[in-house]
Design a protein around this nucleic acid. Structure first.
Lengths: 341, 341
DNA sequence: CGATTCCATGGAAACGATTCCACGACGTCG
DNA sequence: CGACGTCGTGGAATCGTTTCCATGGAATCG
């Protein structure tokens, strides 16, 4: 079908040098004469030579490929994260192999196995559940790994996560100041570190700011929008329903919003709503959504930086990025006249 | 750092067979005895052996990796498409290398070069602009390629695209029936086939259904949300502003929505709005958005199927998927009493 | 019962790059 | 003026797998 592809030998022959010299020129080895460099470059251009990455990786054990394992690309948070990490990696000359665990442990394992077989230089993962078998295989092989967004208990790997606590405290304080006493919390799955941490932060802050600690006000979702709808539905049906809702991620906030719309309740008026994670169009809703915002771009960038350090044999400190409340109109100011200046 | 990794020789030695036999077992070659199969399988499990994909690909020229080149992962349409294609590929035993051209031709070229170097088995691309140099390098090498969503004029490659025309005709007809006469169109960039096709369809349908063909009613955007905002702003400022807006993709619809909100205009009431591409939360807006919907999942699946056929040496027919109007409340029924049954 | 086919197997070449090692030419220093 | 370090270069080994080819034993057939 395809003719025999051009190899470095063809380049060397055309340039009138040995394959060894051609290789040195291509990999930027300083032990080359200006003349060779020039001739090899000309030959490469002439033949439109693209070195075979497999052969290169086989010999040199560097692939310049990193694996990025996410739980769901369709979640805008992870899409943004993927974008940020990919751009940061590209700037370092690394190509990203994206794996989508799709909220499934077997699929996560499948991708991790692929990463191992592809001999990626490192892995950035937002891990699912409690440490799968392949995750351990990864670490046993000393494949450089960092966690992003989530961590796994008992697994000592550098990570970059969000300090959910500060943002949630601010949100709870904000709601308390507005006079809310019963705040419904739509939590993430307790099998993820973020799901657990955010719930803990919420409970603590609720106690601290004197909100109701009624356990019925907490609904455990799964970070997907359908569970947000279900959660809102459940909370609104309580004998003493909440006057405000806080959702632990954006898809669940979207789901809750759908339920509110269906019931004819207007956010910021009949019911306050705050979402964790900021999404571009949240500010475009009417009224715009109050959110707990975190710097996804920084998270992706930092994850790549940490991974590079691990690859270089260091053991970097984990990074915790701040989150902060961005107040918009959905969180129900009692007196609308107190608007922006 | 890491000890010498285990190779197929170690497996063979432990199993008491030759590397050749071990290889045959691993690749499912039928010329193996049950006994060898059993012994090799045991050795693989014992050593937790993961074959080196580089060496394998180097020798066999199959990598089981496909490249997927998109213009923007953060656009929900492409995120869904990536997800669909990835899942379909995975079901066929192929791993997806995702490249994000990020609306930039140099970055598209960079990823295509990487795909070539990685010797991917095939490429699925939503091409940018008018055929970059690397795109031609790809085709000259006879690397199996299919286009998805978009095509490039003069490049004869199988593709899977959406028949924008039917959906747009339905939308225009729908608006005309509602009594709209001046419909503003926020178009995509004319450097993409989808941008051009959809504009042509709109113009033709507008003529056909007796809408105004005033050229001022068309604003050319770039498929990103900011241009949607700008487009809406421009159209609303016309001496004779439109009574309905049609946006050629979802981010631009979001941008237009932002502008409408800012001006205090309610969709479905003061201004009809229809978006091309359906996004989960569009139906959750208040009022829900009327959209032209296309089956993204089928598009991803079909792209993988076409690619597999090209890899097998066939020349499959291009596929055009239907689009259809999904009427919701944003497209302004004059008489609200004519609701659902 | 001898000849032919079939089948599982092992040895060795091959894939396309990198890199170790040796080598010759050159400049420098004692 | 001879010894030595430096520098660019080429030959050859190497990475870990697949696959071609040859081989020997079992099974089948006339």
């Amino acid at each position: 079908m395809t003719g025999p592809s051009i190899t470095i030998k063809d380049v060397a022959a055309l340039a009138g040098v040995s394959p060894a010299t051609a290789s040195r020129v291509l990999s930027g080895n300083p032990a080359t004469s200006a003349e060779s460099r020039q001739k090899v470059a000309a030959a490469v251009a002439e033949l439109d030579f693209h070195p075979n990455a497999q052969a290169r990786a086989l010999r040199s054990t560097r692939t310049n490929v990193i694996g990025l394992l996410l739980s769901d690309v369709r979640n805008p948070f992870f899409a943004d994260l993927a974008h940020a990490a990919e751009q940061a990696a590209l700037a370092e000359g690394l190509v990203t192999l994206l794996g989508n665990a799709n909220e499934s442990i077997p699929q996560q394992d499948r991708y991790l196995d692929t990463f191992i077989s592809q001999r990626v230089d490192g892995v950035i993962a937002a891990p699912q559940g409690e440490g799968s078998s392949s995750l351990h295989a990864l670490l046993e092989r000393d494949i450089p790994t960092v966690f992003v967004d989530r961590t796994v208990d008992g697994v000592d790997v550098p990570s970059v996560t969000t300090d959910s606590d500060s943002g949630i405290r601010q949100a709870v304080e904000h709601l308390a100041r507005q006079g809310h006493e019963r705040v419904g919390y739509i939590a993430g799955p307790q099998s993820t570190s973020t799901g657990r941490d955010r719930l803990k932060s919420f409970s603590r802050a609720a106690r601290e700011f004197g909100l109701s600690t009624d356990p019925a006000l907490t609904y455990i979702g799964d970070f997907q929008s359908a569970s947000g709808s279900a959660g809102a539905h459940h909370l609104l049906g309580l004998a003493q329903p909440p006057t405000a809702l806080l959702a632990a991620d954006s898809p669940m906030a979207v789901g809750a919003l759908a339920t509110l719309n269906r019931k004819g309740l207007r956010i910021g008026h009949d019911m306050a709503l705050i979402a964790f994670d900021d999404i571009e169009w949240f500010s475009l809703l009417d009224p715009p959504l109050t959110v707990i915002s975190n710097d996804v771009e920084a998270m992706g960038r930092t994850a790549v930086r940490l991974l590079l350090e691990v690859i270089d044999g260091h053991k970097p400190e984990s990074v915790v990025l701040p989150s902060e409340l961005v107040v918009r109109a959905s969180s129900g100011t009692p007196d609308p006249s107190l608007g922006q200046p």
